[in-house]
Nucleic acid binder design. Structure first.
Lengths: 336, 336
DNA sequence: CTGAAAGCGCTTACAG
DNA sequence: CTGAAAGCGCTTACAG
């Protein structure tokens, strides 16, 4: 006498074949390339699939065909994430083509990257979407050697691993510097999270400022993830340490909001005494008081472009360009 | 003469075995249950793995062992998402146990659910995490029949499919009603997205209000996803249509912020003329003017609890309770 | 502690 | 248009 759990064995392709009175090979064809199968045969197979409730086993299918229909997306984190729109757009597009997305969290430190890469490769993904780049040469080679399409996003590396869909953090720093310069600011401060990409923005900013005649840039480096409280405290310490600034480029909108809050608490007027520019153009950017000028990246555009590259390549369609620059915009609101 | 792409064949377990002078079976054991293998043998195998750069093929492994080490997470959407923290906590915990997370976007309509469920089951996941519930009986059975652990989250269904980690939307509606009542409000408005769960909150609210002696509740139903602009326009139309209200329960913080903005634009004082409570306790809830009272859900707690259930079950450890209620809190700020 | 063998559920040349 | 057969790369009783 059995209780509860029935054997839970799922019907297999072979069972469907038997029911439809064809060979397993024909069922496989009917499911994957229906054009190759006679109409009447197809009908019988569809009916058998329906009757049995058959769901193909993609582990077996992937193993046999060497095509996993899987794309890995590697992001540092998700909470408070600026990656949502990219991931969402990409996932939607890939799901439409019957691909699936494996979500991988890498953290902001690189130390676990080797294990993470291996765990990704173990699934034999057809594509790997990276946030930023991978600098370790061995890891880069390991990624490429799999034959998967590798796409670096949200960056613009000197030496791409394979494909790139991103923008130049360096240029963003320069553009922000230009805005402050146009506002007549001469004492810039950069509040920057401790990340490769924030550092690129810092460098772009500093170099542009130098070109514009401002050689002195104050910098506050903060641990990741950058928060409201942190931004606030950072400005407090800076000012109490005797620092002077009339403009601030922040690593995130949370930081920027913290900086603004602290500044106003101390009687500074934003933007008159202190102009502030954030990064990310978050939901709340127009809800702060004053509203926040911020750098906007089109995440959906990145996600879509990456998905298209993968699908085109999988379908053998004419290759996309290796590098796609989606650019950025700076949304001017009140704070600068 | 070959060019570019080297054969890209990855080393197999058999090659590792040959190099280590053992059988494939022993390599498999060394990798999965090292305790069963002699130390010296193990050493040789580890060395061979290193030398070859071997990465196990989980498609093959999963097929052979009938354990995919895959968990599917199904959420309606990611952009502006309230699910981030849940997903992040769950993914972290599962990755630690060498499980991987497949991200599935379902949209807010149920029409594509059957295909989505099939695409999920095709990967033979060991667990399926759902946002909300699945009402279609056939789909429920299909899910269960796979033997995977099914976990419904962010809900508290009458008849759970399997496990539940969530909270009661109905109770939230009631709690919000109580707050408005304590503030002496008698003309409530509910701005509610067109979703099952928002409707539960609406019902809880309406019933509690009735118990508290307020029988008339105005309702504005909005399409999903609920946005700032929508909330704003909704209030505008409501007031211009002659509607009266002294308090509003909103379906999201974005809506709430829109409602507040519109109210102030029209000279209404928040909270004096109009008390407002949002849902989600988003980042910007304390950045609005006035700051926003909102319902807070501990997403990380949900994600962790779900991951634990899966891992405990996979390890055959004593079963977790079928239903976990993580509750909710209402964060009082200025708007109510 | 280790190996030989069967099998997991598919796909895909190959042949007809 | 269809089938027989081999094979994808693992795991796991079974036997020793």
């Amino acid at each position: 006498v059995q209780s509860k759990k029935p054997p839970a064995r799922r019907p297999t392709l072979t069972e469907v074949a038997r029911l439809a009175r064809v060979s397993p090979a024909t069922v496989s064809r009917a499911l994957n390339t229906p054009g190759l199968v006679a109409e009447e045969t197809n009908r019988r197979i569809v009916e058998a699939v329906r009757k049995t409730g058959y769901v193909p086993n993609l582990l077996a299918g992937g193993l046999a065909s060497n095509r996993s229909r899987l794309v890995a997306v590697v992001v540092p984190a998700l909470a408070r994430s600026i990656f949502n729109e990219m991931i969402e757009a990409m996932t939607e597009e890939l799901m439409r083509a019957r691909y699936q997305v494996m979500l991988v969290l890498s953290g902001y430190q690189d130390e676990h990257l080797p294990e993470i890469v291996d765990s990704v490769l173990a699934r034999r993904p057809e594509g790997v979407i990276l946030t930023g780049t991978v600098s370790d040469r061995k890891l880069r080679e390991r990624l490429v050697s799999t034959g998967a399409t590798i796409i670096e996003t949200r960056t613009m590396p000197q030496e791409p691993i394979d494909y790139v869909v991103g923008f130049s953090h360096h240029d963003i720093g320069a553009a922000v510097a230009q805005i402050f310069h146009d506002l007549g600011r001469r004492a810039p401060l950069v509040v920057s999270p401790e990340s490769v990409r924030a550092t690129e923005r810092l460098n772009g900013f500093t170099q542009a400022m130098a070109r514009l005649g401002v050689r002195r840039v104050s910098t506050l480096t903060l641990p990741i993830p950058a928060s409201f409280g942190q931004g606030r405290q950072a400005l407090a310490e800076f000012l109490e340490g005797g620092g002077r600034a009339d403009c601030v480029m922040c690593g995130s909108d949370w930081q920027a909001h913290g900086v603004i809050t602290e500044a106003r608490e101390r009687g500074l007027k934003v933007p008159d005494d202190l102009a502030v520019i954030g990064f990310g153009n978050m939901d709340f950017a127009d809800a702060t008081e004053p509203s926040l000028t911020s750098v906007h990246i089109d995440g959906r555009k990145i996600g879509l472009a990456a998905a298209r590259i993968l699908l085109d390549r999988a379908a053998g369609r004419p290759q996309a360009p290796k590098v796609t620059d989606v650019g950025f915009t700076i949304v001017r609101r009140t704070s600068a």
